[in-house]
């Protein structure tokens, strides 16, 4: 554990809590991609199956359980509780275009051809692209509420901090997880355009982020 990893995990947690509270308090999931949230729930489910097979630390276990619970609670709010506020027409990204290549790649490029390893690899690849339906939705509608952009900012920051964590771990313990690092770099790149808009539009102005 290092400071980048800890801050990264905290940003990830903050992002998920921001989204959950936004939907819960406003009783609306307008502007939120339910598809991205289902993909994230799938990411956590397939990655954290090792909860049943290996114990790493109390911190590790608690965070995994919290992420899983919040991910499913968010999906529940979007698709059941506040379903009437869900913009399904704008959430039109075809997730099969992500799931099929990601599933295929996880069979081809993994550390071990074992069920849990393939599912872990699948979750890493899927996480790197899971935000695309949300970014697509914002591009399509041309705007996002500022609270939604704060969510995306913390989610992107989490990924960027994990990159710093890997640089740190490489130099201090020689740790290098090729699959996680390559996917992490890809994932962070997706946020760069958003980061630019966030700093130039949201933080300088107020209210919604509108695309040029």
């Amino acid at each position: 554990m290092n400071i980048f990893r800890l801050l990264g995990d905290m940003c990830h947690l903050v992002a998920i809590i921001i989204l959950f509270l936004k939907i819960w308090r406003s009783k609306s999931c307008a502007g939120i991609s339910g598809k991205s949230q289902v993909l994230f729930a799938l990411v956590f489910t397939t990655r954290y199956l090792d909860l049943f097979t290996s114990f790493i630390s109390v911190y590790n276990t608690v965070m995994k359980v919290v992420f899983l619970v919040l991910a499913y609670a968010t999906v529940y709010l979007i698709y059941l509780r506040f379903r009437s506020t869900y913009n399904s027409e704008s959430d039109s990204f075809r997730v099969e275009f992500l799931l099929v290549p990601v599933a295929g790649l996880s069979f081809l490029e993994n550390y071990a051809f074992a069920p849990l390893e393939i599912l872990w690899t699948f979750s890493i690849y899927l996480e790197s692209v899971a935000i695309l339906p949300q970014l697509f939705m914002i591009t399509k509608t041309g705007e996002a509420e500022s609270i939604t952009t704060h969510y995306l900012f913390f989610l992107g920051l989490y990924r960027a901090l994990y990159l710093a964590n890997w640089v740190w771990r490489y130099h201090t313990e020689g740790f290098f997880d090729q699959i996680a690092v390559v996917s992490g770099v890809v994932q962070t790149i997706f946020y760069c355009d958003f980061f630019y808009l966030y700093f130039t539009k949201v933080l300088r102005g107020s209210g919604k982020m509108t695309l040029p």
Partner: peptide, 10 residues
């Protein structure tokens, strides 16, 4: 032989 790796990151 193929022990699953211990993935300690979240």
């Amino acid at each position: 032989a193929d022990e699953p790796a211990n993935h300690d990151e979240l």
